[in-house]
């Protein structure tokens, strides 16, 4: 139970970083922390105490393997989610650089031409 609580604390820390910091790069870091907290939770969902990696190698007993291995599905999901996170991260960093080029600042409170 305590590990789930820790991932939630990590998630909330990311959210705090996103909301409280003004620097756009720090906001990006906050989003990435939130993303990784969710990935960690997904991995924990499939975890089994004393389990083995879900890879069948030559010479392993299949019946014993299915009772021992951890759930492989969340691991596949996490890999997909990491790839998506990478794409979003690249886009966010590119946008930060472009924003700096235009506004000459990373401070979000000064980047506000749109209002109303």
């Amino acid at each position: 139970m305590i590990v789930y609580l820790l991932t939630f604390i990590l998630f909330v820390m990311g959210l705090y970083c996103l909301v409280a910091k003004k620097n756009v790069v720090k906001k990006v870091i906050g989003i990435v922390i939130m993303d990784y907290a969710v990935n960690l939770l997904l991995i924990l969902v499939g975890y089994r105490r004393g389990g083995v990696a879900p890879i069948l190698l030559k010479g392993m007993d299949r019946a014993k393997f299915t009772t021992q291995s951890v759930d492989p599905l969340p691991q596949a999901l996490v890999l997909t989610s990491i790839v998506i996170g990478l794409g979003v991260l690249a886009l966010m960093v590119a946008l930060c650089i472009r924003l700096y080029e235009k506004y000459k600042t990373f401070d979000m409170s000064e980047i506000r031409r749109l209002r109303g």
Binding site: K27, I31, M34
Partner: peptide, 26 residues
């Protein structure tokens, strides 16, 4: 200027939304 700022806001909120959806699915 305006496009980049709008896209960054959209990206931040959309990113949080996607994270919440993923958390819900998990």
């Amino acid at each position: 200027h305006e496009e980049l700022e709008a896209s960054f806001k959209y990206l931040i909120l959309g990113g949080v939304a996607s994270t919440l959806v993923l958390l819900g699915i998990a």
